[in-house]
């Protein structure tokens, strides 16, 4: 009987420690993805298959990929050559995790030690029952993130006098005191 929880817990712990101690941001991000998958295995084992899938798809799949994308974009002097011996650590951890996943998934029922699995149906009933308002508020949350990220991330035009062309070509010249000057000394 394979101690899934303990193995996944160990992998999560080791990889999170590796995240904090790395110098190279890319290595840290990859270790963190490993830690997320390990936590997903714990969810699988704790009787929460839906959330385990969400964690892998959304957290590791979308958020961390966005993170890696931006870090690669910035590329702050990151030495990307990966020597052979550096593969040993992640390889061992991933192997342990694979064993955990295989053990958990093999066989039709989800083998959880004494825990009735909460099926996606229960979560859906809760989400669109008492927590319907929460789902609406979460959408407001994402809207706020969207608008803030758009404003902060938008490229700055080279020449940006206070009014006129820089904002949007052919903009109606608004009222108020147009004080044109060099942008952001």
């Amino acid at each position: 009987m394979f101690p899934v929880f303990y193995v996944a817990g160990l992998v999560a712990l080791v990889s999170t420690v590796m995240v904090v101690t790395r110098r190279n941001p890319i290595h840290a991000l990859l270790y963190f993805i490993l830690s997320l998958v390990a936590v997903a295995v714990i969810f699988l084992d704790a009787g929460a298959p839906f959330v385990a899938a969400l964690e892998v798809i959304i957290y590791a799949g979308a958020i961390m990929v966005l993170f890696i994308f931006v870090v690669m974009l910035l590329n702050p002097g990151v030495a990307l050559v990966i020597r052979a011996r550096e593969w040993i650590g992640p390889a061992i951890l991933s192997l342990l995790l694979t064993l955990g996943i295989v053990y958990s998934v093999v066989g039709s029922t989800i083998k959880t030690m004494g825990i009735s699995a909460t099926t996606p149906k229960d979560i859906a009933m809760a989400l669109f029952g008492p927590y319907l308002l929460g789902v609406e508020l979460a959408s407001l949350l994402l809207l706020a993130g969207l608008v803030a990220a758009y404003h902060l991330g938008r490229r700055i035009e080279r020449e940006a006098p206070a009014r006129g062309a820089s904002l949007q070509p052919g903009a109606p010249v608004g009222s108020g005191a147009p004080s044109s000057r060099k942008e952001g000394a």
């Binding site: 407001l140 949350l141 706020a144 803030a148 940006a160 000394a185």
Partner: peptide
């Protein structure tokens, strides 16, 4: 709290060029 905080991130850093 999070809706407030995340919109404040955008507002506090609104002068993004300075």
């Amino acid at each position: 709290l999070e809706i407030l905080s995340i919109s404040l991130y955008g507002l506090v850093a609104y002068r993004r060029q300075t």
